[in-house]
Write a protein that binds this DNA or RNA. Structure first.
Lengths: 247, 247
DNA sequence: CGCTACGTTGAGAACAATCAACCCCGGTGG
DNA sequence: CCACCGGGGTTGATTGTTCTCAACGTAGCG
């Protein structure tokens, strides 16, 4: 099983290393929401933010729990997902440094969230965040842009899930991942895929076996090369793009 | 083919019947964005809104066109969709009276939109709408709620597309449709499904044939009854809900 | 060194797609 | 009035992609 820890961390006591002004030194500031903030606002936000650390596989959020907090990912990766009663799982998104978690939710969280590998996050209480939102005009605009971007991504994913073949799904995933890495300042071509086959399957609406087989086929055809340390080289990105049937 | 008219209406001259203050008499006001507006704001909005009428099958928006307008549906239904190069189609959503069209899009429309049956809409120019948005605080909040709701719906649809069987998809569709009808003040149980089998298939990631067969099976099992005029009776909504594997 | 989680591969089954035919109904025109 | 037409809907036969079940390989770690 992927989720092995049932304790929710969303209201656990955070491991505070008492930083005086963590936000100024924040490594993901330019990626995250806080880009929109002035120096003073940043100082103010520092007073309400709390750092949280998760171990691999740890649960941050249970679907349906009261949405008391919002988070920004500092380092590491998470999966957010929805479950059907019989255990079928749909991974809605993977979150990486700079990504935001918890905006869409109103009274309860609409999905679960678990760490992949070790994760560091910033945690805001919902009410404090709403307060900041009401006062900092730039924050609001930026947040709207984030949600809009998420909605666009979700709609693209609907096309992938509803109308693409297994092969097209995998190739689309690789391309998207590569582009996202480039945009986030990470290495674009031998991409590092920190998520397991099971997660990829649950993200693309496939079984692990189909994911594995498809990777093998692509490797055999020479369009990708599987490298150590979860890395994948895209040998002809242009050709791959065509194979993915982009919208 | 479903889309038979290639002329875009998004910048056609609207059929203006010169209403003095259309927004006050608006039938979908309580459903739509304009709920958030005061009497004065409503009057002001009246001056920038233009009515548009579409005939069955007519194209309102081409995917990729410059996003010059935003719309609110007055009556009728539309489908919004994305296409792959080879013609595979994913219907992203159906729009009904009170629904909003064009928020998520930035410079260009991210999807196509076509009328199902005859449709009446309100049309705003993008710039005028942005102006209203900047000035009317309530509008902004309401818009954010709309986008948040759309994102939640999109994420639910991802579960449906990625992890549900054909049968579960159809049943989920019927339940969702019934609930939505109830919320919009239309009749909840013999539901009226104004969209064709092909559209349902493209919405659920299925072929027409599978949609048709599944309807037939459900009918034979007695859980639904197919009535004239595109109506469907849900004979045991509770049982259907269980069959749909809700989240 | 063996445990465990993850990944790969194989054989067979199953669900949905494809290809094809037919029905039904409303509209149109002889 | 009836024949024809076309779009949507249904049904059947068959194919095929993906899933399921099962076994085995591999790498990291106590």
């Amino acid at each position: 099983m992927l989720q092995n820890d049932t304790r929710s961390l969303s209201d656990a006591v955070p491991r505070t290393d008492a930083p005086r002004n963590p936000c100024k030194a924040c490594g993901v500031r330019r990626l995250a929401l806080c880009t929109a903030l002035s120096k003073d606002e940043l100082t103010e936000i520092s007073t309400v933010v709390r750092p949280v650390t998760l171990t691999p596989g740890q649960t941050l959020i249970h679907e349906g729990d009261p949405a008391k907090h919002v988070f920004i990912v500092q380092s590491g990766a998470l999966r957010i997902f929805k479950l059907l009663h019989d255990g079928r799982r749909q991974v809605v998104a993977f979150l990486f440094p700079g990504d935001f978690l918890g905006i869409v939710n109103r009274v309860t969280y609409a999905y679960g969230a678990e760490a992949i590998g070790q994760v560091h996050l910033c945690r805001f209480s919902r009410s404090e965040f709403d307060d900041l939102l009401a006062r900092f005009r730039g924050l609001q605009k930026r947040l709207f842009a984030v949600v809009r971007h998420e909605l666009n991504a979700a709609q693209d994913q609907m096309v992938l899930l509803g109308r693409k073949t297994a092969r097209e799904k995998i190739v689309s995933f690789l391309i998207t991942f590569s582009n996202y890495a480039a945009k986030s300042g990470r290495t674009e071509n031998p991409i590092t895929i920190p998520v397991a086959r099971q997660d990829i399957g649950d993200y693309l609406g496939l079984t692990v076996e189909t994911v594995s087989r498809t990777f093998t086929t692509l490797k055999r055809e020479g369009v990708i090369t599987l490298l150590p340390n979860k890395r994948v080289r895209l040998n002809d990105k242009k050709q791959l793009s065509e194979m993915s049937n982009p919208i």
